[in-house]
């Protein structure tokens, strides 16, 4: 039977019914970072703790990846089935701006400042047919 495996350990809470991205926050200067690191990018302190990041935020900027990337890109697609995908930064209030794939993939559907929400779901399948679970953002309802 196929399993659900996160694309990387420690990127988001897993398993979970309501996953959140996991960041680290510096206890000295208050700066948050994603993914979690062992030290703070602003002041270099090693006094950082893990925290769940907000699931909603505003779109800070975006683009659309028009061609199928070369390795290390890995997906279920072939050059024939590839469809352009959205990429953006989402401003998570009080935390950090996170870069992510977006479920929207046309210029008409994307606007700086729009409200976005986290989705955690199947990104691709591995050789054994397991589901590799990743994160993305989509326009919030």
């Amino acid at each position: 039977m196929s399993k659900k495996i996160p694309i990387a350990e420690g990127l988001f809470t897993w398993p979970s019914d309501n996953p959140a991205l996991l960041g680290s926050r510096c206890q000295e200067c208050g700066i948050a970072e994603f993914p979690r690191k062992l030290s703070c990018p602003a002041c270099g302190s090693e006094n950082v703790v893990s925290e769940e990041l907000p699931r909603r935020g505003k779109l800070w900027t975006w683009t659309i990846q028009g061609f199928m990337p070369k390795k290390p890109y890995l997906s279920d697609e072939t050059p024939e089935t590839f469809r352009p995908f959205g990429v953006g930064y989402v401003e998570l209030p009080g935390a950090v701006c996170v870069e992510s794939r977006l479920l929207e993939n046309t210029a008409e559907d994307l606007k700086i400042g729009m409200e976005m929400e986290l989705v955690v779901g199947t990104y691709r399948h591995d050789e054994e047919g397991n589901e590799i679970v990743g994160f993305a953002f989509k326009a919030a309802n």
Binding site: I7, A8, Q65, P69, P72, S75, F85, V87, E99, R101
Partner: peptide, 12 residues
């Protein structure tokens, strides 16, 4: 950076 970043097509 973790390998997931390249895998998802963000290392561009």
């Amino acid at each position: 950076i973790g390998e997931w970043y390249g895998e998802k097509g963000l290392m561009i």
